[in-house]
Amino acid sequence: MIGMNTERLVDLWRRLLADPRKSWVLFEHGTCVVLTAPDGDLAEQATEILKEFGPVRAGSPAGDFGVIDVKDADGGWVITGHHQDVLTYVAPDEPSGRDNFAVGMRGRTKRHRDGTELHIVHVEDRRTPAGPA
């Protein structure tokens, strides 16, 4: 990823995903899987979601994307796909163009790589530990 290291990406996703109850898992190319119902091993749960909803399949909903401009968090964009909890960050210096199509295609390509390589770089476990009964 051009100009973005894992530490900066983790910081960025922490700011973007401000809900303190949301656990999430970050993959190598900037795709974040938000776990709305975290259960058991978060890495395993996120990997299963991304394995199914990350790879691009032309002519299917897996090829679709949306683009959200995130001016408040270092600039750049969040790319959505056919699963509402799978999001990919594209930094301002990455796309070859600034229009939504070029940015979205860059994010979709990154999501596809994450969905096929499945290399986790960070797990954010925000589940509260169970207290004494």
Rank of each mutant, 00 (worst) to 15 (best):
D125G: 05
P20E: 10
M1L: 01
I68S: 12
R113L: 15
D39I: 14
V86N: 07
G76E: 06
S23H: 09
A91M: 12
F101R: 12
E52R: 15
T128M: 09
D69H: 01
G30D: 09
H83S: 04
H112T: 04
R113S: 13
V123M: 02
V90Q: 07
K22M: 03
A46P: 03
A102P: 09
D69W: 06
A130Q: 06
W24D: 06
V103D: 01
Y89K: 12
G59L: 12
T6L: 03
G66K: 03
L17N: 03
Y89L: 13
L12Q: 05
A91V: 15
V90H: 09
E94T: 05
V103E: 05
T6I: 06
P95I: 13
I120M: 06
E28V: 13
V34G: 00
Q45W: 15
K51Y: 14
D99N: 13
L26D: 11
I2H: 00
N5E: 01
G66R: 06
K110S: 03
P55F: 09
R127C: 13
E28T: 14
T47V: 09
H83F: 08
G81T: 14
N100E: 12
D64Y: 06
W13V: 03
A58P: 01
A130F: 04
G75T: 03
F65S: 07
V34E: 00
R15L: 01
G3D: 01
Y89H: 10
T80V: 13
L17H: 01
R14W: 05
L9D: 02
S60K: 04
V33G: 14
T6A: 07
V67A: 12
V34S: 01
T6N: 02
W13C: 05
R98M: 09
G3F: 04
G63M: 05
V86S: 04
A43Q: 13
H112K: 04
D93L: 11
W77R: 04
T116Y: 10
T128S: 05
K110I: 02
D93N: 10
G107K: 02
A62L: 00
D72C: 02
L17I: 02
D125P: 06
Q45E: 15
T128F: 08
R126S: 02
K71W: 11
L118E: 15
V103G: 00
I2K: 03
F65V: 10
D85G: 08
A133G: 06
G40W: 10
K51Q: 15
K22W: 10
C32V: 09
G66S: 09
S23W: 06
P20C: 08
R21Q: 03
L16C: 00
K51V: 13
F27R: 06
L50I: 12
D99M: 10
I2P: 00
F27Y: 10
V121S: 10
R108A: 09
A37F: 00
H112D: 14
A37R: 11
A73N: 01
R14K: 15
F101W: 11
F101A: 12
G97E: 10
P129D: 05
V70D: 05
R106E: 15
G66T: 13
V34Y: 00
N5T: 07
H112G: 11
P95Y: 13
G81S: 15
R21E: 07
D125R: 09
W13E: 02
A46M: 00
P38E: 15
